[in-house]
Every structure is written in C-alpha cells, then in structure tokens.
Design a protein around this nucleic acid. Sequence first.
DNA 1: ATAATTGCAAATTTTTTGCAGGTTC
DNA 2: GAACCTGCAAAAAATTTGCAATTAT
Lengths: 131, 131
Amino acid sequence: MTDYITLLKANDLKATIQRTSILQSIDHAGHINIDDIYDDVKKQYPTLSLATIYKNIIVMQENNVIVEVPLNGEKSKYELKKDEHMHLICDSCGFIMDTEITSQTKETLVIENFQLKSSQINLFGLCKKCQ
Amino acid sequence: MTDYITLLKANDLKATIQRTSILQSIDHAGHINIDDIYDDVKKQYPTLSLATIYKNIIVMQENNVIVEVPLNGEKSKYELKKDEHMHLICDSCGFIMDTEITSQTKETLVIENFQLKSSQINLFGLCKKCQ
DNA sequence: ATAATTGCAAATTTTTTGCAGGTTC
DNA sequence: GAACCTGCAAAAAATTTGCAATTAT
C-alpha cells in the first residue's frame, strides 16, 4: 500500500485512496481491463465510481505509472509500468505472462532506416497448463 | 476490383459492392480505422452506412479476409490478411510499415513451456523521413 | 489555504441490433 | 427462389464532461 503511495508521489500524482486501490487491483491481476478493475475496487470502496477509474487511467498513463495493453477483439488491459518485456498470451485461457526480451532478440530487431525507440511484442500460443 | 471479389468468394462471403469498396479502402491505406474507412467509401457510395462497415469488419475478420491491428490510445486499425509480418510505427507521423520477421528473430522467440502459434510485433520509433 | 480529486448525473461517442426492402448466387 | 446483405433508426454500451462537495499536501 505504502508502495503505491510512493509510486504515485514519485510521479507527481496525489495519493488518493481511489488511486492506490486501482493500482493494487492492477498489480494484483497483472493485466486487467477497466470493467474488471471497477468490479474489483468496488468490493472495498463501493462508492468508487467508474468515471473516477476512467479519469485516473488516463492520468496515470500520462504520468508513466501504468501502461495500456491493447488487444484484438476485446477491451484494452492495463499493467503497472515495468521494464521492457514481452507478453506470452495463451489462446486457450487468456492468461498474459510477462517475459524478458532477450538481447539476442533485440539484436535481430535492428532495422535499417528506422530509429527504434520501443517495442511491443505479443506472442500467442498455449501456456504450459493448456497445452 | 476483381481481386476483391475473388478474395471474398474464396472466403465464403458474398461479393457486395459495399464489401469490395471497404476492402479497396483498407488495401489502399494499408492500415486504417473504421471512421476513416467510412469517410473514404462514402465518397464513392454516399449511402453506404456505418452499420454496414461495423458488420462487415466483424464478418471479414471471422472469415480471415482482414486483421485487426490494436493500438495504444486510439481506435484499432485494420489491414488485409497477409503473411506474417511486423509493424514499424513512426512515433512522429504515425505511418505504419510492414516488415518481414526474419528467421533470425523467429529463432530467438522460441520459449520453453510455451507452444507458439503466432506473434504480433510492433516496433516504435522514427521512420526515415521523420528522423 | 490552495489546488486537485471525487462522485454523481448528464452528455457524448461508439458499437450493436432489428427489420423491411434489396441483392447475390 | 433461398439465403444473405443493406440502410435506417433505435437501442445499448463505452467514455467523457461539468460541477458541487471533499480531500491531499
């Protein structure tokens, strides 16, 4: 909890109970969409409104606290901002797992005439449990 | 034009003028969102409705004619279904360029305990013109 | 004390649906 | 001719906004 307060303040945001509970929900789930955050935080703070979540998702993205994970055919999920990584997404159970992008992979992604700044890599397939 | 008719029929869809013009719009743009398709096709077919575009985007995805490209902070774009490739996305002008995923890259993406089926790779940075 | 944030309700935007008439094969 | 597709208008879902009351620093 203290962690989220520190995280918010370090990024110039006031530490409200609404924000810390949204962050806790995202952190706990790993990757989660807005409706599921709402269901989650309402358990503890029944008056926390959906509008507040929308507003804070925007402001926390702007302040580099969280990151959007856009997905095909469903609403975007959000994750805490972390070091660069890629996503292993299970076609069967939908679970999203973070994995390091190896230096070997990075070396192969140097492209001529393109000044690379960042990357988004999603790998789809079957996770250990589902295969 | 004939190409789009063939493409649709090959994928069990009736070749209507609405569908061929949507495909032409997507093909011409490379990557384009629903509103821009709408603006585009209305020039030729002013009565073509947004509802028809929504319905066809869904059915053409289901029938493997087009593919969604989900993006952070904006509406998804759509492209014609093509061979596996990655996207170079310019942070400055927004242009999306298709590029081959090299076999060297693929080799580095073999992960233990994950049965890879497909991948989505977006690289962000500056294109030749914008750097 | 000040400036920012919240929750509510209303407004707006986006997407989906139902159905009568038209089109494709 | 059968099945499917379209356009319209209406419905539903998702997101944003304005503002008075509250809260963080």
